[in-house]
Amino acid sequence: MPEEHPLIEMEREIAGGDFQRAGDVSSELKNILQRAGFPPAFNRRVVIASYEAEMNVVIHAYRGVFRARVYSDRVHVEIDDQGPGIPDLELAFQEGYSTAPPHIREMGFGAGYGLSNMKKCSDVLVIDTRVQEGTKVVMDFFLSPSNS
């Protein structure tokens, strides 16, 4: 199958620890999807998962790159970070499990819902992680009449 050309491509840097600008990348993607005319429920799924992935970089990693490719019937998102990696991925998927430090939790982050929100909202989620190197998250969202 030949690779379909995306309608819109987006690439942004995410800085680890920068809570002031955290969420800006997901917000930009939301605006792009709204302007492209996708249904709000579909946009919401993409935006929740993207926000969680973006926040994981801000909370845990040193830096990351966020790439989104928007097609007519799907959205592909990749977040590639340099950071601590995830030693136990199965544990990390458990709701409520978090390795975020107390001062981050006090801000209402690191409640342990990030990965499970990403899983619930995406149609395909692939995580490639190496301890003390980094984590790559790849998510696909398919637009279909039954499943907006």
Partner: peptide, 26 residues
């Protein structure tokens, strides 16, 4: 909890919280 609000709150709602840092606005 921000993950809770983003997953569960409905558009057009008022949000009551003790959190006051900039990410609440995001």
């Amino acid at each position: 909890l921000l993950s809770d609000c983003i997953a569960n709150a409905e558009e057009g709602s008022v949000w009551v919280t003790v959190q006051s840092h900039p990410n609440v606005v995001a």
